[in-house]
Amino acid sequence: MDRQTGGEADWPGREALHDLAACLRFYSRLPVPQMPGEGDPHRTPDFARLPRMLPLAGAILALPAAVVLAATWIGGLGPFLAATLAVGTLAATTGGLHEDGLADLADGLGAGGDRDRMLTIMRDSRIGSYGAIALFLGLALRIGALATLLDRIGAAAAIALVLAAALSRLAALAPMVLLPPARSDGLSAAAGRPTGSSLGVAAALGVALCLASLPFGLGLAGVAAMAGLSALAVWPVTSLARNKLGGQTGDVIGACQQVAEIAGLLGLVAAMAP
């Protein structure tokens, strides 16, 4: 007999599909339709369970940018223009969510002062000089890394972009797991922490995506460098958040994703050195 949930028959993979759809809605501007048997698609996501699908959601979010990267490279625009258009496409797909987090965190930590002052600055919608510098450097490093990869491995750089997007979102779970919310009234306070089983599924998906990328010219050393540096890059950001803010916020998580993505791409560049 079928189990019933919300008036709809249960089926294998139902919750995973719902979590994937919720991830795509929360982390992007994509018009994701309501899934069969899904409840209110606009409710606050369940972050205890939702993160298990983050690596797969990250890979899907990067697909339009990967297509743009490969198509413009093959079309003869050259590595710099192709990489710039791809990074622009990715930012448009996500609404600049993580870039905004990086800029806000840089503004808060750069301004200094006590914890409350830094958190107040991070909530300000205006961007300051530290945020602008961080945003510029983040975009420049991603564009430069992709342009270099196009020179060295050609259109396979599109696979690297997808894998970097997936691994960086997995790595960005670190502050959610290790730190308490820095604010009592922020989204991170209401979201809670991922469960151990959610983290296990997310890690398994990350490994599966790494293995799936191997036949596309990234090489074992390159994939290992991407995964290792993505994971390592979030620790300084997490430590700063612990020492300066007393916990994590959405901006800290967004900054971790950006730093992890940059580190992963740079690791692959180094591994693919001629």
Rank of each mutant, 00 (worst) to 15 (best):
D2I: 10
Q4S: 11
T5H: 12
A9M: 13
D10W: 15
P12C: 08
R14M: 15
R14F: 11
A16N: 09
L17I: 12
H18S: 10
H18D: 07
A21Q: 09
A21R: 04
A21G: 03
A22W: 04
A22P: 01
C23Y: 02
R25S: 07
R25Y: 10
V32S: 09
Q34P: 15
P36H: 08
G37L: 01
E38W: 00
G39H: 10
P41R: 08
P41I: 05
R43M: 10
P45D: 10
F47N: 00
A48M: 12
R49H: 15
R52N: 08
P55A: 12
A57M: 06
G58R: 03
G58K: 03
I60L: 15
I60W: 05
L63T: 12
L63P: 06
A66D: 01
V68A: 11
T72K: 00
I74F: 08
L81P: 02
A82L: 06
T84Q: 02
T84V: 11
T84L: 15
L85T: 12
A86G: 08
A86W: 01
V87F: 14
T89D: 03
L90Q: 13
A92W: 15
T93F: 04
T94F: 06
G96H: 10
L97Q: 14
L102Y: 04
A106R: 02
G108P: 03
A111N: 05
